[in-house]
């Protein structure tokens, strides 16, 4: 799994402030976004303009989350995917979403198994 590029100090300070509930909710929200995007990438569903608008909502939510927790690479990946729109082919769109999903999974993994979680 790729090491997530994120501001771990910021993320840790947020979790410290909001406690276990916030950590769990952040993780759940990120995983929901990841699941929704995976469904678009790996199901038989066509990523056509209509479906892309569904993805756009998820990408927007994910971007807001990523900005808040300092996941800079995920922010960038989301923005790139959002900018693609419907002008490019399915393969390019899927590739872009796969990148987002991979980065999102890395961030989720960090949140789930933070090194200092039990410290």
């Amino acid at each position: 799994m790729v090491e997530p590029r994120l501001d771990t100090a910021l993320l840790d300070s947020l979790v410290e402030m909001g406690g276990e509930d916030l950590r769990a909710q952040l993780l759940a929200d990120l995983q929901n976004c990841e699941t929704a995007l995976k469904a678009l990438c790996f199901s038989d569903q066509q990523i056509v303009p209509g479906a892309m608008s569904g993805a756009a909502q998820v990408l927007h939510t994910l971007r807001g989350l990523a900005m808040t927790i300092g996941a800079t690479a995920l922010v960038r990946n989301c923005m790139q995917a959002e900018e693609l729109g419907s002008a490019v082919g399915r393969e390019t769109l899927v590739q872009s979403l796969v990148t987002v999903v991979q980065e999102c999974a890395s961030v989720c993994a960090y949140l789930e198994y933070r090194p200092d979680r039990d410290a």
Partner: peptide
């Protein structure tokens, strides 16, 4: 705010 974790975070900050 529709994202639950962000709502939770903002609410925490405001409550503090």
């Amino acid at each position: 705010e529709d994202t639950p974790s962000l709502q939770m975070l903002y609410r925490t900050v405001l409550k503090k």
